[in-house]
Simulated assay, not measured.
Amino acid sequence: MTVEENGYLLMLGERIRELRARRGMTRKALAQQSGVSERYLAQLETGHGNISIILLRQIALGMGLPLVDLVREEPEQPPELTLLMQYLSRFSPKKLNWARGLLENELESSGKTGRSERIALIGLRGAGKTTLGSLLAKDLEVPFFELAKTIEQEAGAELSEIFSLYGQGAYRRYERRSLESIIENNERFVLVPGGSIVSEPATFEFLLSSCYTVWLKASPEEHMERVVAQGDYRPMKDSQEAMDDLRRIIAGRIAMYSKADAIVETSGKTVEQSLAALREVVVSA
């Protein structure tokens, strides 16, 4: 292989590792879900993937297409969307954020959304979403929804069974349908989605455009402490590896979590202090 091809495999491996972390999946979990051995995944993530990947890339390059166009499974998108995406691709991150805000304001002014009445708390497990969300809903006298429970009701199975029997793809479909159902049937609420919802860009964008989102932010150490305090001792099985994975997950999701309308830092704060800060940003929405 050429130096350029080796560089591509390294880039591909890093990308796969980043996406796995963003979804909160261990290599073992990905191996179980994909049917690909942990050993091969380890090779792929360190830049030693199968040569067939290079051949597939060569075919894509030969047609002047990005590799993703060859492996895309979604239906062909409307030409208007294709042209719009090409136009937006020239924007800087700052201008993209401005354009998104412009569209959201247009929807707000046309009365098609009421985001400030629909509160969604995002963040990793252990940030205090369920505790603060239920208290906030009680204060506002609105329904409180945990998306995980709604998904289980929709699927007629627990989350662990959904993953083991049907895989990640089925979970994401239930997640989207459950979110759509809550928004369609409720004008006001407080919602707590799973921390990995940011890993599904289309669903996360729907959440952002439909709800006033608040990122409950905490340090990796506090995330770990709170999860253990909830009775889940699995992270302590290999505490250093678990902490490294947690830091990688947070790093991979920061860019998406930062798209929230507001941020409330819960590290080093009591529940009462965090709730007061949350109330303040919600009331000012």
Rank of each mutant, 00 (worst) to 15 (best):
E180R: 00
D245F: 02
Q230A: 15
E222G: 05
Q153N: 09
K259M: 14
E225C: 07
V227S: 05
Y233N: 13
L208D: 02
S160Y: 13
L191E: 08
R188E: 14
E154M: 08
M224S: 03
L208S: 11
Q153M: 05
D244N: 15
V214S: 09
Y171A: 02
I197S: 08
Y171K: 08
V192M: 03
P201R: 10
V198I: 14
P193G: 06
Y166S: 14
R234V: 04
E265I: 10
K149G: 09
E146L: 05
Q240N: 03
L216N: 05
D261K: 05
I162F: 03
Y233P: 03
S181C: 09
Q168I: 14
G167K: 06
V264G: 00
A251Y: 08
A170C: 03
D238H: 01
C211G: 12
L207E: 04
R176Y: 06
M224E: 01
D238M: 04
A242E: 10
V214M: 12
E221R: 01
G195H: 09
A242K: 00
L191M: 11
M256R: 15
A255Q: 14
L159M: 13
E175D: 01
L147G: 01
E221V: 09
A218N: 09
R253Q: 10
R173D: 15
F144H: 06
Y233G: 06
L147A: 09
A260L: 07
I162A: 03
S181R: 14
Q240H: 02
G268D: 13
Y233V: 10
H223D: 06
K237R: 14
R253T: 01
E154V: 01
T203I: 11
R253P: 04
G169V: 08
A255P: 05
A148H: 10
A202S: 10
D245I: 00
Q168T: 07
S209D: 10
A157F: 06
I250E: 08
A251D: 15
K237Q: 11
A157W: 05
E221N: 07
G268W: 11
I250K: 05
R253C: 01
E158S: 06
I254E: 05
G195D: 01
D244A: 15
A255V: 13
L179Q: 03
E265L: 04
I197C: 07
R188K: 15
